[in-house]
Design a protein around this nucleic acid. Structure first.
Lengths: 352, 352
DNA sequence: CTGAAAGCGCTTACAG
DNA sequence: CTGAAAGCGCTTACAG
């Protein structure tokens, strides 16, 4: 609308409103925040002027004055990974609900980029940060971040030795459920596929895999761990490595869903039927898991809810809660579809 | 660091720096912006204090004073669609490079939510907005948005009748290439699958499909259009509808890659081999297209580059360029993989 | 119930 | 080359 007095495009401010309504800017500020101090008649007059001028509240100015911020930094390690996209959506939605606005940065697993965006966010005065750290981020990195001293929650990748609150699924328990299911289906040689030993998430999922094996009295064979990039292509390569082995596994538990997708695909390509000839289980339950060929049996951590939980934890931190209290480990649940071979096993049993 | 004088956690400001360095805050401001006016010795002294105090520049305060903004709103219609995730990554990266910081909103195709986030972004003083409009957004909606009057570029979904600059791929030409390829492979009954007639993107891609058909002297049969949600599940349903037809198509050109994935999957499920028995082509060339079973032949619009282009256009707008000059239609190119049946056709020719 | 005044952390002419 | 002063658009005691 600009300034009606000058015709120039300068945005309208509360001073303009005050003048036009014949009140002081204090009063305008009061009606803006819906204070009950203002007489009804005055309030209505001011609101009419606000409407007429198309006034836009300048939250930045207000935040400067009150030394608060409604921005939150959302630092994602790889937004093109469907899992993180879903997480980002969960965080974003919760943030808006809580009255915050997310500043997005996709680090693409680049530590240097991570440092840059964190610095930028700090200068932009975010109230706090939610971050899925880029690979290679360690406690020392975190401690020396430009963002230290501001509220920050780490998600999805636990950083050993860091006191920052961590929000993520119970990887070990989830993995154990998945592998127990495979064992229940009759599998005895179950490989672990994807990720690298340096990743805490892999360590936790491997621990769960081993738990299930040991509990069933099966040997824990490190030769059945096939590391790879946690991607579709990584899943393909890991699967091929497993197949090249003297005694290939009859089932594979994968680091995540996209690894599992790469694995099922590689299996199909070689004429081996995933879910029938080889059991495959993933982790994450991303949206497309059910559209895989065959539909993926996987461990769900309720990604969106986890995102909301990140926002809650950050809010707690901002409000002064202790970091430890704001940590959260989410329950997981096994979603049985076809890739694990469950329907096949059932059929086998049926016709046996 | 807080204030060394009080020990209290109040953030350090240029006034603190000025006092400690024995200069005025004007001088501190000058060294902050790297002005050559400041004597080297003074500059170094000030910089040392800045370093010692761990001073953090308050960009919000600076922006208030200069009436500028380094925020840009990025409004995405559905971030869980891999195509839009890639677009978002492209936009985000370019924005940081240009010195801006993106505020993210995922509208999830909800018009009401779109209105809310736009209003919120305006209050937060964004310099402009890049938006892939939610389905159902029309020129009237756009004209009455809280965000009207601020620089805005529309991407990926053209809004007829709106003067706002539009950045997107050449859908019609891209679709034509895809269908011409299918025709070259010997197909005569080629269906169009996915999306709805109300979507301009569908209209444009259908136009290209028809262009190719007509140019080859083939009939344009509206009965070969199978509408559906532009999702994996939509692709599945559209494919089933086509199969239920008296004379099913021998090839399908899909609205986008995820529809094509749903279609190939539905085909496989029924024992029909995509790429061998039925040709399938997608649009977008999302990252996972090459990992589909079979790998998807698709039309690439170079999504990341398109995102960068959105950022460039917005910057142009902010700098005062006309909306028309900032519109951009991207070249497309056909990426031939296996789902179209090209290798099969080649093989057939080879052994014929 | 409303207004005058101070101040949030910066930048930018303007003096000197 | 550097400093004093004004001002960006708000909020918040404090008077009255």
């Amino acid at each position: 609308m600009g300034d009606p007095r000058t015709g120039i495009g300068r945005p309208t401010t509360i001073v303009d409103i005050a003048r036009a309504a014949g009140v002081s800017k204090s009063t305008v500020s009061l009606v803006l925040k819906g204070s009950s101090l203002v007489k009804t008649e005055t309030r209505e007059r001011v609101e009419a002027v606000i409407e007429r001028f198309g006034y836009v509240y300048n939250r930045g100015a207000a935040n400067l004055r009150t030394a608060t911020s409604s921005f939150v930094g959302m630092v994602i390690s790889d937004l093109t990974n469907p899992f993180f996209a879903e997480l980002a959506v969960g965080i974003e939605e919760a943030l808006y609900q809580l009255g915050f606005v997310p500043i997005l940065a996709n680090t693409n697993e680049d530590l240097e980029r991570q440092g840059h965006v964190l610095r930028s966010m700090r200068e932009h005065g975010v109230a706090g940060i939610i971050m899925s750290p880029a690979r290679g981020t360690d406690a020392w990195t975190l401690a020396n971040l430009p963002a230290r001293s501001m509220p920050m929650v780490i998600t999805m990748r636990r950083i050993l030795g860091s006191p920052l609150p961590y929000v993520g699924p119970d990887n070990q328990a989830g993995a154990r459920k998945a592998v127990e299911h495979l064992i229940g289906l009759g599998h005895r040689r179950i490989a672990f596929m994807g990720g690298f030993a340096s990743m805490t998430t892999q360590q936790e999922r491997i621990a769960g895999w081993r738990d299930a094996l040991l509990a069933a009295g099966l040997p824990f064979d490190e030769g059945l761990i096939f590391e790879s990039m946690p991607t579709r292509d990584g899943g393909k390569k890991a699967l091929e490595a497993a197949l090249a082995t003297p005694r290939p596994p009859t089932a594979v538990f994968c680091y995540n869903d996209i690894v599992a997708m790469g694995a099922t695909r590689a299996l199909s390509t070689r004429g081996i039927r995933p879910g029938l000839d080889v059991g495959v289980v993933g982790f994450d339950d991303i949206d497309e898991a059910e559209h895989n060929a065959p539909p993926l049996t996987t461990v769900s951590a309720d990604t969106r809810a986890m995102g909301a939980r990140c926002a809650d934890s950050l809010l707690g931190l901002i409000r002064g809660s202790g970091a430890a209290d704001m940590s959260y480990t989410g329950e997981t649940r096994l979603v049985v579809r076809e890739s694990c071979g469950a329907p096949f096993a059932a059929r086998k049993r049926e016709y046996a």
